[in-house]
């Protein structure tokens, strides 16, 4: 006896499900694409960059299937208004500090749900007359499994503090509530997640561990000792707002006042070098001064001379206020 001819969905229902999937996939693809520029962390940028194309291919495959189901090609359709609200919320986090929220929305909420929903449909899709849809679903399930593993790896890397972990969880819960209220992307409810999410191999050019390695900060800066000493001294002087000690490193005519003024009264307890760029024989150097109240980035241009290294320009590049703990850089 061959495979059963029992069917669970009509042609029209199948086209509707596919339009619903395509809506979520297309919006997620456009969001990931747009977020790359808004996301500072290279690991997350590379992750998003890799997956935009996979999602575009999913949307394309769904969209091409539609005319075979008596429906217009490449059409996306939300199942209901609450699905629109869910996707709107998922797209919300846009600030540089919200990389974790961006990734959590896509990789912890939407993608696991899509994988479960595809799997649920695959179980019900008839093996005799729905293989064209089944093949698309199988490919999407494989990709989503891989994406989820890669995304979770990067989220784990970025959630470097308990506060970030808590923020990630809170955001996840909020989006899960919205998704549940929508009845999932198809409006038909939330199918249980299939087993085996955590064992996808990382091999299809989206090895998240490599993305994380490429993000690692410099272990030690390749600078001559005299410059290193000068940088340490200037960093400490900035922290202490010690104008006299600062002036020791400033070239003639450069005043410490504007930077000291910009640092204001914020309590700053530590300093570290975060960037050293070469500009011919000169160096552009960035310090990060941190404290409970604020985090300040100071940029100086150092020029070598007969007296040693001196700063010819010194500016406060950025001041960040408390409460917004940032992912580790």
């Amino acid at each position: 006896m061959g495979l059963p001819l029992t069917g669970h969905v009509s042609v029209d229902d199948s086209a509707r499900l596919i339009r619903n999937y395509r809506y979520a996939v297309e919006r997620a693809m456009r969001a990931l694409g747009g977020w790359i520029a808004l996301t500072p962390d290279v690991s997350a940028k590379l992750l998003m960059g890799r997956h935009v194309w996979d999602l575009a291919q999913h949307a394309e495959a769904f969209g091409k299937r539609l005319p075979e189901l008596r429906a217009p090609a490449q059409v996306s359709e939300p199942a209901n208004e609450r699905v629109v609200a869910f996707m709107d919320a998922l797209e919300e986090p846009e600030t540089p500090q919200q990389t974790v929220e961006r990734l959590v929305g896509v990789y912890r909420v939407l993608k696991p749900h899509l994988r479960a929903s595809y799997h649920d449909y695959l179980l019900r899709a008839n093996a005799v007359y729905e293989p064209p849809t089944r093949r698309i679903l199988s490919r999407c399930i494989d990709d989503e499994r891989r994406h989820i593993v890669a995304g979770e790896t990067i989220i784990g890397h970025l959630c470097a503090t308990p506060a970030l972990t808590a923020r990630a969880l809170a955001w996840q819960r909020r989006l899960e509530r919205l998704l549940a209220a929508a009845g999932g992307v198809t409006g038909d409810g939330l199918p249980p997640s299939p087993p085996g999410a955590g064992d996808a191999p990382m091999e299809m050019s989206d090895d998240a561990r490599e993305f994380i390695r490429l993000e690692a900060p410099m272990a030690s800066w390749p600078v001559p000792q005299d410059l290193r000493d000068a940088l340490d001294s200037l960093g400490s002087s900035l922290l202490a707002r010690n104008r006299a000690a600062l002036a020791r490193w400033l070239a003639a005519g450069v005043s410490p006042d504007p930077v000291c003024l910009a640092l204001g009264a914020a309590t700053l307890t530590s300093h570290r070098l975060v960037a050293i760029a070469r500009l011919g024989h000169q160096r552009l150097v960035k310090w990060r001064l941190e404290g409970p109240d604020a985090s300040v980035t100071v940029l100086g241009r150092w020029v070598p001379g007969p007296e040693g290294w001196r700063v010819v320009t010194l500016d406060v590049a950025r001041i960040e206020l408390p409460g917004l703990a940032e992912p580790r850089r």
Partner: peptide
């Protein structure tokens, strides 16, 4: 290229496909 995928939802779908492919290439 990522911004182009995001910024022009009303452009022809094949255009979005090409730009999405480009995002993948550039990320590699």
């Amino acid at each position: 290229a990522g911004r182009t995928v995001c910024d022009f939802p009303d452009a022809p779908w094949e255009f979005t496909m090409d730009m999405a492919r480009q995002v993948w290439d550039e990320s590699r």
